[in-house]
Amino acid sequence: MRTLIEEFVLEPGTGKALELRKGQILRLEQIEGGQCLDFNCFNLDDYKEFFHCGRTRTLHGIHPTRGDFLWSAPPRERAMMYILADTAGANDVMFPRCSANLYESVYGYDAHTNCQDIQAEAQREYGLTPDDVHDSFNLFMCTGVDENGRTYITRQVSKPGDHVELLALMDVLAVPNICGADVMRTSNFAIRPAKVQIFAASDEDFAAVPPLRSWRTQRTVADFKVKAIRTERKLARDPDYRPEFVNTPIDYEAIEIALDAEELALLGRLARREQYGDRDGEALRDIVFSWWEETRPIG
């Protein structure tokens, strides 16, 4: 059984920073329907680890939904939250948050509700600056890519009662806000309230989360050469800096491969000539690593 911890209505034009402990669920629900919400989250113990659209998009595509995770940015790359429910199935990780400049430059507003400023105002409760707002997980936002590769936003499909549930997999500062767009189609030309609930997850909720592997490359501050967070705004060169790039220099070794007639014929058939011309060595290298990628013989 889930236990309700907190419930409130998020009013138009506002957002709220919420401390969510590992094992708690944030449920965001449509009241009237048709309302886009933007969402940011941070590791509560280290705000420099935060939800990353790019990492999430790479693993789950441009419309993350039930069964997907919210991942933190490289070099952390940990699952921060898990999408337990998504009844509208219209979320986006392509578009950046809307901003005051958008409403000024396109519509001429001196002031207009916008996700950047609403997020910044909500995050200010925890001492974060406007620069700490990052690209959001856009909930209840219908987007796509057209045949020319251009991204677009279209009208909302969500109905009253539609909801997204996010299970915290670590302690997070979760920041939902009502998208400020009322002169764009994102929320069908209105700004409406939304219902927010926090629950303690049930055993059934935990059981829904697929097992996660941990990796050495999910870095922590202990792995960093620079551990302290800068406070000076101006950048200055470290005179003692010596580059320590990994695995450098990159050195190529020429390796002779004797191919029999059958293998040579195979190379002739498989070689990507449009890519490599008559450079058989490069064509063979492509085949070897393409085979590896496609079959993953180890690991």
Binding site: I250, Y252, E253, I255, I257, L259, D280, G281, L284, F289
Partner: peptide
């Protein structure tokens, strides 16, 4: 059987993956 030699250039990271596979 007749054999033909093809020269493939591999860097240390590429060799590492192949060697771990071996």
């Amino acid at each position: 059987m007749a054999e033909t030699t093809v020269t493939i250039h591999l860097n240390q990271q590429q060799k590492d993956l192949l060697d771990r596979t071996v």
